[in-house]
Nucleic acid binder design. Structure first.
Length: 277
DNA sequence: ATGGTGGCACCGCCA
């Protein structure tokens, strides 16, 4: 490794209740030891977040935007934050974003600032018609605000966006493109808007740098499947975007497919990236 | 064959 860079591992995972699945978070930590873990759907108020357990495991820096019962995002980190912020969307009080600023110290160069945004985009309900389904209208409104924000670019030299974005943009991101064209998460209005925001903002689809289309790549499989592994009807709903300055920085990307088979699993699996900054 | 499962909360809602 270049001694003038620092290696950093970042995980993103929709955990579907951080309290119920704290043992799985601990398992992820024991096996992969990410420097930073971005969680979505923590489903608990900040006061109930398992802060002390995670601090004992070395994640002493924790930024929370939780709420009771629904949504909720968190960033836990071995590295300190110089600041954090939570953005509101659509005039609602949903906890769907937390952002942090990390100072990454290189041994022989000036410190560099890395911004990480952790997002939980609305799922959007079942009916892909905003006139009939206000949850889908909310999702489209959320994307419109994301376009104004992230579509305008990173705003920072070194920036990463991760999270459950609840859209599978490419044909290779779903088990059947044709069967899912009318299914919320893969409708043309969603996939086209998603890719328009990403490309207009100059964001790199980091996962697809490592597993290019048309190879299938999934991060989510329904709880309703009788046998998730055999049928493997998955979707890539979780994403890692990076600003242009990070184009050459990523060294690895792993989708922990096996995590879908862990005891009492989340329906999403962790995605882990390693980069040098 | 048009279901199914899972979490949280409170006895329905959301995913």
């Amino acid at each position: 490794m270049n001694p003038m860079t620092r290696s950093l591992t970042i995980a993103t995972w929709n955990i579907n209740s951080v309290r119920l699945r704290l043992p799985l978070v601990e398992h992820l930590i024991a096996g992969w030891a990410p420097d930073v873990i971005c969680l979505q759907e923590t489903k608990c108020p900040d006061a109930n977040f398992p802060t002390s357990s995670l601090k004992k495991l070395g994640y002493e820096h924790i930024a929370l935007n939780g709420q009771k019962g629904y949504h909720g995002v968190a960033i836990i980190s071995k590295l300190p934050f110089s600041s954090s912020d939570a953005r509101p969307f659509c005039g609602k009080q949903d906890s769907r974003h937390i952002g942090v600023r990390l100072t990454v110290s290189g041994s022989a160069r000036a410190d560099r600032t890395l911004v990480i945004h952790n997002l939980y985009v609305p799922a959007g309900g079942d009916e892909p018609d905003p006139a009939m389904n206000e949850k889908f209208a909310h999702k489209l409104g959320f994307l419109s605000e994301l376009d104004q924000w992230l579509g305008a670019g990173s705003g920072e030299d070194l920036a990463i966006v991760v999270g459950d974005l609840n859209i599978a943009p490419l044909e290779a991101d779903v088990w059947s493109h044709k069967k899912l064209l009318d299914v919320v998460s893969h409708t043309p209005i969603e996939t086209e808007t998603f890719e328009a925001i990403r490309t207009r903002g100059g964001w790199i689809d980091v996962m697809r740098q490592f597993v290019p289309s048309p190879e299938k790549l999934y991060t989510w499989r329904s709880y309703r499947a009788a046998d998730w592994s055999a049928t493997d009807k998955g979707r890539r709903l979780d994403h890692v975007w990076a600003s242009p300055a990070l184009a050459g920085a990523f060294r690895s990307m792993d989708v922990l497919r096996e995590a879908r088979g862990w005891d009492r699993p989340s329906d999403h699996v962790p995605v882990i990236v390693k980069l040098e900054v």
